[in-house]
């Protein structure tokens, strides 16, 4: 049995549970259930922010073709806070590249913010990334020659839109991540945690729909990691953005609302979050 909404095959106990619950979307995450069990029809009609259907990604290394994603399907709705977990080699980074439109599927369908990425030109994809997606990377990926403020402004600058209003917004964002006094510092003059906070501020500059964080704490000590995750959680709670964190750390995943587990290029679990503490309603 295949759950068309959550996009995974349901077998064994789960299938049993699903059938006996009598609800069509019983296997959805608890958040899904909470949100939509009362109105399954609405859920089915709703356009998800991210829809991957049977996405296959194969890397062509000359003589051998390496399949990384082998039929990945998932839906992520507006406003959700999601962790994609999996061991290294599970394809989660490639999944993040597809979701972030940095890469396109070899086969299958990927619809991001209502746009079918397979039908988009390179320029359209760049526009989509610029306007709808904010990236946070493991290596922070700030431009070393630019100050914190200029880094936050970069998505605007690249579009020739770094006007006074944008500067004001960038300053506000830096203040909100606690870096109001370090705006003119270069990345090399900032600690890892501070750099990541600059990157988070940058991700928000164009008011995107989706914040996509790839191992955002992978280069940080545990204390700083905790603060960064808290910051992301706070921002999610207050901004109504969709936040997707790719991580291999179960503790970080536990902070989110829904955990998608990947293995061998597929989704193997669409289970609920371990912690309910941050759910606004629960």
């Amino acid at each position: 049995m295949y759950d068309p909404v959550c996009g995974i095959a349901i077998d064994g106990e789960a299938r049993f549970a699903s059938e006996h619950a009598g609800a069509r979307y019983a296997f959805c995450s608890r958040s899904c259930q909470d949100d939509f069990a009362s109105d399954p029809a609405r859920y089915a009609e709703m356009d998800p922010l991210i829809r991957l259907e049977q996405v296959v990604k194969t890397y062509d290394l000359g003589e051998v073709k390496v399949p990384v994603l082998r039929g990945l399907s998932m839906r992520i709705h507006h406003g959700d806070f999601i962790a994609i977990v999996g061991a290294s080699g599970s394809g989660k980074s490639t999944a993040m590249n597809i979701i972030g439109t940095l890469d396109v599927p070899t086969e299958g369908k990927a619809v991001i913010a209502g746009k079918d990425v397979m039908r988009m030109t390179e320029t359209d994809l760049a526009d989509l990334r610029n306007g709808k997606i904010g990236f946070v990377f493991q290596q922070f990926n700030l431009v070393p020659s630019l100050s914190a403020l200029e880094n936050v402004l970069l998505p605007k600058t690249l579009r020739g839109a770094a006007d006074a209003a944008a500067v004001k917004r960038a300053e506000k964002l830096l203040e909100s991540v606690g870096l109001g006094k370090r705006m003119t510092h270069r990345p090399s003059e900032l600690s890892g945690g501070e750099q990541q906070r600059v990157a988070i501020a940058r991700a928000f500059i164009n008011d995107p729909d989706l914040i996509l964080a790839d191992e955002p704490t992978g280069s940080l000590d545990s204390e700083t990691s905790g603060k960064i995750i808290d910051l992301l959680s706070d921002l999610w709670r207050t901004s109504s953005k969709t936040v997707v964190i790719i991580t291999h750390d179960p503790q970080i995943a536990a902070n989110t609302r829904r955990i998608l587990t990947m293995k061998d290029g597929r989704l193997v679990s669409n289970g609920g979050a371990a912690s309910k503490a941050i759910w606004p309603t629960a």
Binding site: T123, A126, R129, N141, V143, P144, P155
Partner: peptide
């Protein structure tokens, strides 16, 4: 890497 960052942030090939 900087080019990669700028592309992720929405820079086109042309820019």
């Amino acid at each position: 890497r900087e080019v990669g960052i700028m592309k992720a942030l929405g820079a086109t090939d042309r820019s």
